[in-house]
Amino acid sequence: MSAFTLPGFDLDAFVSATLAEDLGEGLPGGGHDVTAESVIAPDTRFSGVMDSRDAVVVAGLPIAEAFFRRLDPDMTIEILAEEGAMAAAGTALMRLAGNARAMLTAERCALNTVQHLSGIATMTRQYVEATGGKAVLLDTRKTIPGLRHLEKYATRMGGAQNHRMGLWDAAMIKDNHVLVAGGVGEAVRRAREAGVERIICEVDRLDQIEPALAAGANHLLLDNMAPAMLREAVALIAGRVPIEASGGVTLQTIGAIAATGVDYVSVGRLTQSAPAADIGLDFTPL
């Protein structure tokens, strides 16, 4: 089986939970694939090909493999595309041969995962290309609960970098934190005095920049600023800390935003709104 590991992600637990959900384990009458068991003889064997129906950036094939191998450890599986590669429409991504019931039972879990992650990777690549190489694309915490590590993996396959992984690896001071603390400078000061090393501070006005920097912010997030204001903010910050632009970024606007001189552009829709990639799986009896 292909080696696939992500820090903080338990592949075995994910496969178990996903299959259990689809099979209805623990529910009255659940725990099995009614259709496959009633229609397909136990010793029937299939071959199959997973392929892209549209051009996609590939992500998630090793996870799909894990679903199939869970139900048929002896299944022959050949992964034909590298993670993060661009695959043209009609490209074969995976070939497999083994027990037909196992293939049919695992099919939807495997396809859902690859379609979702490849959809994220494909949209991410579009945004990366739209920056024109002038800024680094970041993802956000706008992920489906339970899928963050996989979705952020998919953005990396598309060419983005991960923003903070969660609430634990950086302080991100936003408007509500500022409201409670009484000001940008006070909020940053409290984080600094608490010993936080990485302090990201969101500002939506130019007059918030100096108080945030003076208090010790080491990354500024410029929220919902138009390109003209972003350029002015970049000039005021003058390279003292990394600068991130965020808020309402689309494929049509990211080029102009990246051209203002910011270091990063973060886009929530990469994980929040990416459509599933059109990837199919066709079987042939052996």
Rank of each mutant, 00 (worst) to 15 (best):
R192I: 11
A181Q: 05
Q252I: 05
A274E: 01
V262G: 02
A238T: 04
G248D: 12
L167N: 00
G182M: 12
Q252R: 12
R164N: 07
K152A: 00
E210Y: 10
A214T: 15
V241H: 07
A212T: 02
K152V: 02
V180N: 07
G239N: 10
A256I: 04
L179S: 10
G268H: 04
Q252H: 13
V262C: 09
V196Q: 05
A256H: 13
E186C: 01
H163L: 06
Y264H: 15
E151C: 06
D207H: 12
R190W: 09
N162H: 12
R269Q: 12
L167C: 00
R205T: 15
L236R: 15
S266G: 06
R231G: 07
A187L: 09
L150P: 02
I254Q: 04
A245M: 10
I243Y: 08
Y153R: 04
I209F: 09
A217W: 11
G255H: 13
L167E: 03
T260W: 05
A276M: 12
A235V: 06
D169Y: 09
V262F: 08
G239R: 11
G159D: 08
N218M: 08
L221R: 01
R269H: 10
L213I: 14
T253I: 11
W168Y: 15
A191C: 15
G247T: 04
A245S: 13
L222Q: 04
C201R: 01
L167I: 01
T260Q: 09
M225R: 01
V265R: 03
A187N: 00
R198I: 06
L220K: 06
A226I: 14
T155N: 05
D223N: 12
L236N: 02
D169W: 06
N176H: 12
I279G: 03
L150I: 14
A233V: 02
T253L: 10
I243P: 00
A233Q: 05
D207S: 11
V196E: 04
G261T: 01
G247H: 13
V249K: 10
T253G: 01
V178K: 02
R269F: 08
A181R: 06
R192G: 11
I257R: 08
A256Y: 07
N162D: 06
D207A: 10
V241E: 09
A215C: 09
A274N: 00
C201K: 00
D175K: 06
